[in-house]
């Protein structure tokens, strides 16, 4: 899907936020970036999305150009003046296309919001708003999903549900994703690979290898899960040591 080579970034005249980091993301893979605040996780997403320009390194795409990309932020970032259907169809409508009724219903069905298309964001719960945000990212048939702590503001129970929703959506639709989170457990549960970041560098990589045939609770209680979480925590505690 994409290769990031020796990527560096600094804000005008400031210290380096990212220092020669390299990341690869394969088709259908979900990779988490986990690390302390200010380590550059979100900057990676913004560079990949083209919202920032790197000062060094390059981002190359398997197909030669960036695929259809969706972005989910920590806050739902919905338009309060538009109903659910208009929020979801934003990516298409900005290109002069319409989201047909069938696709809208399908997308609402994916995120469990059927029947709420005429509601306005203020009439939705925090979890429902985040589902709209995810639906918007997926509505234009995104092949790459960039998620910047999308569930950071939700309570733990809702966060578990949203994690399961993301896994179900990914299994069904096959998109690739880069997922930024502060939560080691969320990163391990969701990801094919976890990249641990520290001070603008990749400090280590962990492959959880969870058995997805198990129930959600069993996956979270499995040895693979606990071992992977321990490895991530160990890398984080060691600071910038590059070791997995």
């Amino acid at each position: 899907m994409l290769k990031v080579r020796d990527l560096s970034f600094a804000y005008d005249g400031g210290a380096a936020v990212l220092d020669n980091i390299s990341i690869s993301l394969h088709d259908g893979e979900l990779v988490s970036l986990v690390g302390p605040s200010g380590c550059g996780k979100s900057t990676v997403l913004r560079l990949v999305a083209g919202l920032l320009t790197p000062i060094g390194g390059e981002i190359t795409w398997k197909t030669g150009q960036a695929p259809e990309t969706g972005f989910v932020f920590q806050d739902a970032a919905l338009m309060p003046w538009a109903d659910v259907s208009k929020n979801i169809s934003l990516p298409l409508s900005l290109r002069g296309q319409a989201l047909d009724a069938k696709r809208l219903e399908e997308t609402l069905g994916f995120v469990g919001l059927k029947g709420l298309e005429t509601r306005y964001p203020q009439a939705l719960s925090g979890g429902q708003q985040m589902r709209v945000s995810i639906a918007r990212a997926l509505a234009a048939d995104a092949k790459l999903l960039l998620m910047d702590e999308p569930f950071g503001a939700l309570d733990e129970i809702l966060r578990f549900r949203m994690n399961d929703l993301m896994l179900a959506l990914k299994a069904e639709q096959g998109w690739s994703g880069l997922f930024v989170t502060h939560s080691i457990y969320e990163a391990v549960y969701l990801s094919d690979r976890v990249l641990v970041m520290d001070a603008g560098r990749i400090a280590g990589e962990v492959t959880p290898g969870l058995d997805r045939t198990l129930a959600a609770a069993d996956q979270r209680a499995s040895k693979s899960f606990i071992d992977a979480a321990r490895k991530v925590a160990t890398i984080l505690e060691a600071g910038s040591m590059v070791d997995a």
Partner: peptide
């Protein structure tokens, strides 16, 4: 204007007019 909505309009290639009429004005 919401910073993240502004980013989304950039990501989805909104024109200057679309950004004004559909984001800044409301």
């Amino acid at each position: 204007v919401d910073r993240h909505l502004d980013d989304l309009f950039t990501l989805y290639g909104a024109s200057r007019w679309q950004r004004f009429w559909r984001l800044s004005w409301p």
